[in-house]
Design a protein around this nucleic acid. Sequence first.
DNA 1: ACTTGGCACTCACGCGCCAGGAGTGCCAAC
DNA 2: GTTGGCACTCCTGGCGCGTGAGTGCCAAGT
Lengths: 346, 346
Amino acid sequence: MSDDRRLAVLRAIVEDYVSSHEPVGSKALVERHQLGVSPATIRNDMAVLEDEGYITQPHTSAGRIPTDKGYRLFVDRLANVKPMTPAEKRAIETFLHGADDLDDVVDRTVRLLASLTRQAAVVQYPSLSRASVRHVELVGVGGRSALLVLITDSGRVEQRVLDVRSAVDVETLGVSLAALRTRVNASVAGKRLREARDALTDLVQQTPPADIAIAAEVAASLGDCLTASLEERVVIAGTSNLVKSGADLSLSLGSVLEALEEHVVLLRLVQELAEEDLGERGGLSVRIGAENLHLGLDGTSVVTTGYGGEAVLARLGVLGPTRMDYPTTMAAVRAVSRYVSRILAS
Amino acid sequence: MSDDRRLAVLRAIVEDYVSSHEPVGSKALVERHQLGVSPATIRNDMAVLEDEGYITQPHTSAGRIPTDKGYRLFVDRLANVKPMTPAEKRAIETFLHGADDLDDVVDRTVRLLASLTRQAAVVQYPSLSRASVRHVELVGVGGRSALLVLITDSGRVEQRVLDVRSAVDVETLGVSLAALRTRVNASVAGKRLREARDALTDLVQQTPPADIAIAAEVAASLGDCLTASLEERVVIAGTSNLVKSGADLSLSLGSVLEALEEHVVLLRLVQELAEEDLGERGGLSVRIGAENLHLGLDGTSVVTTGYGGEAVLARLGVLGPTRMDYPTTMAAVRAVSRYVSRILAS
DNA sequence: ACTTGGCACTCACGCGCCAGGAGTGCCAAC
DNA sequence: GTTGGCACTCCTGGCGCGTGAGTGCCAAGT
C-alpha cells in the first residue's frame, strides 16, 4: 500500500473539507482530485487514516473530516504556503502606508490581518524586554505635581503624574526637577528596561539629602513606568468574522470571545507560541485545536509569527476555526509580518 | 375601559417577557400578577395594545411580545429604576478602587459595566473638547529628533516624535528647543484645545527667522496632537455576553460585532445619545431597537449616561438586546457613572 | 359600559414514520 | 494491491397527526 497516496488522500480531504465545510466521502474525492484510483481504494486508505487518528467521521455512513492530528500533519508536511497575489501585496502596502504613530501601525496591522484572512487577528505590541530607555523627561506641572515621561527606543511612551506637594518646596521645585532629570537620564539612558530599573536604587542613594524625598518619589514612579512598559499588550480585531466562519464554532463562540477579551490569556498563548517557534516553517508557528490548552480555545487554531526584523520584537497572527485555510492564512500572516517589520525598521 | 390597567398589562408583559424570553399569554399574566381581572379582560386590553402598536404576536395563537414602541413606553412611563443593593455598591467600589491611570480607570469601568449588566459595555474616553492644555514639553532626543508631549488637564497625554535633522543645527538644538518650549507654553498653556490650535499660527509668525524652520515643524506636530486629542475614543468590553443573551439577537450577531468594532460608528451613536439627553430620567438616555438608525444595531438597545461631574466629560453605557432588563440596566449604568465621576474628581 | 365564561378556531411544536440517498465496510474476483 | 458489487447504517427531509397554548368573538351577567 502506497504511503504517498495516503498522504495525498489526507491532503485532499483537508482541502475539500476546508472549502466545503462538509464531511467528504470517497466518491467526491476521486471526482475532484486526480488520484487515479477507484473510490473503493480510497475507502481502504481512509480506513487506515482513521485508524491512525488523522480523520474521523461525525457519524456512521457520513464522510470523513480531519482531526486535529490530521490538520497537524497537513500543516507540517503537506501544506505549501500560497504566495500572495500582486493585488494582495498592493492592498497590504496601501493599507499600511501612511501610518505615523506606533499605535497607528499596530491598529492598522490588526485590522489588515483580520480583513485579509477573514478571521480574528491578534497583534502583540512590540515587546520591550529587549528595548532600552531613550529618554526620561521630568517637568513640573502647576507647582504641586510633576509629569514623568519615559520614551523607549521602540517608540513607546509611558507617562505618570506624580504628586510632589509634600516632597519639596514650591520655589525650588523647578530646579530640583531639572537637576534630577539630568541625573536620571545619565543613569538610565541607553540601558535596557530591566537594567534601568535596577540602576534606580543606586541613584536614590547617591542623591543629596535635600532632594531625597522627591528623588524617591520619582524613582518609584519611574520604576512603575518601566515595569508597565515591560508588561505586554495585545490588540485584537475581526471578532465578527468568527461568527460568520461557521456554526460548529459558534457553539463555543461565547467562550472564544471571552478568551479574546481576556488579554492576559491571549498574551500567554502568544508567548507559548513564541517559545515553540524554532524558525522552521519560515518562522510561522501554528497551534491547532486542542493543542491550545486554554478552555474555550479548543476548536480554534492560531497562526502566528514574529515581526520587527531579525531581532523579533513581538508576534502577530490570526485565530480561527480549526478548519481554516492554512496555506492562505499562513501566507497572509507571513506577508503582513514582513511589511510591518519593514515599516518599523524605518 | 381603564387606561391605567392597560398600562399595567403592558408593564407586566414587558417584565414577564424579559425574564422568560417567551411570548406571554393572557392566562400566565393573571397568574403571575395581581391584576384582579379574568384572562378574557386581559385579552381585550391586549387587543387594544396591539392595535396601538405596543405589542405584537410572533404568529397567531401565540402570546404577545413588546414592540420597540412598547419598550419605549415602558422605559418612559412605567419603569422605576431599581436601586443597587449594598452588595452591588460595594462590588463597584472595590472593583474601581486602586485605579491610578486614566487608562486604568476607563478599562476597569468598562469591564465592571459589562459584568454588572451581563451585556456589552461602552465607555467613551473623557472628551477633551472642553479640556485645556496643561503643559507642553519639548525635548531633544539623540540629536536628530525631538519629542513633543502634550498634557491636558484631564490627565490625557499625547506625544509625537519629530525629525529635526534638517531644521536646525545639532549644536543649537537644545537651546532652540528650550526657548521654543517656553514660548509655546506661554502661548497655549491654559487654553482650550481648539483655541490653542489657533494660537499656534500666530506663534510661528512671531518666531525669529533663525528658528522658523523648527518652529514650523513643532507647530505642525503640536497641531497634530491637539487634533488627535480632540478626537474621541471609545473602549468596549463584554461582547461575549451578547452571544449568551439570546438566540434572537444571534441572527444578526455578526453585524452587531462589526458595528462594535467600528469605533467610528460607536462614537456617532454615543454622540447622538448625548445630544438627546436633556437631563430628564436622571441623565439616562435610552435608544431602543430600530431607533438606532445604524444597520445591524436594530434589535439592540443602548443605555447611556454622561459621567465626569456637573460638566459632563463623556458618556458610558451598555448595549444589549431590546428585551433587556431596563430597570436593572439603567440602575447599573447610573451607579457606575456616579462612582467613576467621583473617582475622576479626586 | 365593562367584565366574564364559554367555545370554536388557529397554528406552532413535537413525534413517529417512511422513503431517499450518501457513504461505508466487507468480500470475492482480478 | 486494486476493484466492483452488495448489504448495511444512519442522517435528512417531508408528511401527517395529535396536543396544547392562546386567541377572538359572542352572549350573558353586573
